[in-house]
């Protein structure tokens, strides 16, 4: 609740500032990940979450749900993006244990800085670095599974590039990210554990084709650590995204999240709606 108030104050403050912005080309702001940072769906990209250019600011919000056989993840979040340079995000995750009963709540505060480039116009990919501070509120399951911590910070570097007209005339977008993390299942199961308690470098990647100015389809991959020794699997998803305008985007994906907390074969539908507020 406290964080929501804080976001409200920041949003009010920012909205009173100069120019609200939608000066980027449609689609180039990307989407919002389940951890709040701008990106694809499960992988943070070098793109910032809003359509602001270097003279503008923007704010956006999103909701996402992932429905799995034994779990359901609900995420609500918001970002502000400043002068196509920095992004600040907050996300609240509620992970429902639909088979066991109960839920696990986590807040994630993110910051990202664009270091170089433009996803379309620069010769080399756009590069950003970021962090995600994660604060797990419901700690019982994490402790039961033997995790070491209930708070943690991920650090990542991401490179993203759009290549115009290269896939039989269609535009191609790709992203590669490296993440230093101790998080178990995003942090929902705590940080570190009996098997490993050190930061590990995880590789994440996305690739997609833009079939028009408004439709994209692609795939994402996210490597995961297994600190708890319960067989945490890498994640993968295939997605389609509809971006009717810079104001709103819709994404549907099929996500294979593997084994979660020892329960295998967690595959299901990922639905997300995001939009730019100004």
């Amino acid at each position: 609740m406290r964080c929501i108030k804080l976001v409200g104050i920041i949003l009010l403050f920012v909205s009173s500032m100069a120019v609200a912005g939608d000066g980027k080309l449609i689609g180039t702001a990307g989407l919002n990940t389940i951890e709040g940072s701008g990106g694809g769906g499960i992988v943070p990209w070098a793109t910032l979450s809003g359509y602001d250019t270097r003279d503008q600011i923007s704010a956006s919000a999103f909701i996402t749900q992932v429905s799995l056989p034994d779990y359901r993840l609900n995420v609500i979040g918001a970002n502000i993006s400043l002068f196509d340079r920095a992004e600040f995000s907050v996300a609240r995750q509620v992970f429902g244990l639909t088979s066991l009963g109960g839920e696990i709540t986590q807040s994630i505060y993110g910051a990202k800085v664009r270091l170089y480039g433009d996803v379309i116009y620069s010769d080399w990919p756009q590069i950003s670095i970021g962090l995600q501070y994660k604060d797990l509120e419901d700690t019982a399951v994490a402790q039961l599974l033997g995790s070491d911590d209930t708070k943690g910070t991920d650090f990542y570097v991401a490179a993203t590039k759009v290549h115009l007209g290269v896939v039989a005339g269609y535009n191609l977008v790709w992203n590669v990210s490296g993440r230093l993390t101790k998080a178990n299942q995003l942090g929902l199961l705590g940080f570190g554990g009996a098997t490993n308690d050190d930061y590990e470098l995880m590789l994440e990647a996305s690739a997609g084709v833009l079939f028009s100015r408004h439709f994209a389809a692609g795939m994402e991959y996210r490597q995961k650590p297994d600190n708890l020794g319960v067989g945490e699997d890498d994640w993968i998803d295939v997605f389609i995204t509809y971006i009717p305008s810079k104001r709103v985007n819709f994404t549907m994906a099929w996500a294979d999240l593997g084994s979660i907390a020892g329960v295998p074969a967690q595959k299901g539908l990922y639905l997300s709606v995001g939009g730019q507020l100004w």
Binding site: V167, L203, A205, M219, Y221, D256
Partner: peptide, 18 residues
Amino acid sequence: MVKGLLFIAVCGLLFVTG
């Protein structure tokens, strides 16, 4: 691991198409 290889295979396909 399998998922990583699958991802790389799809990207390779895109590259060939290109």
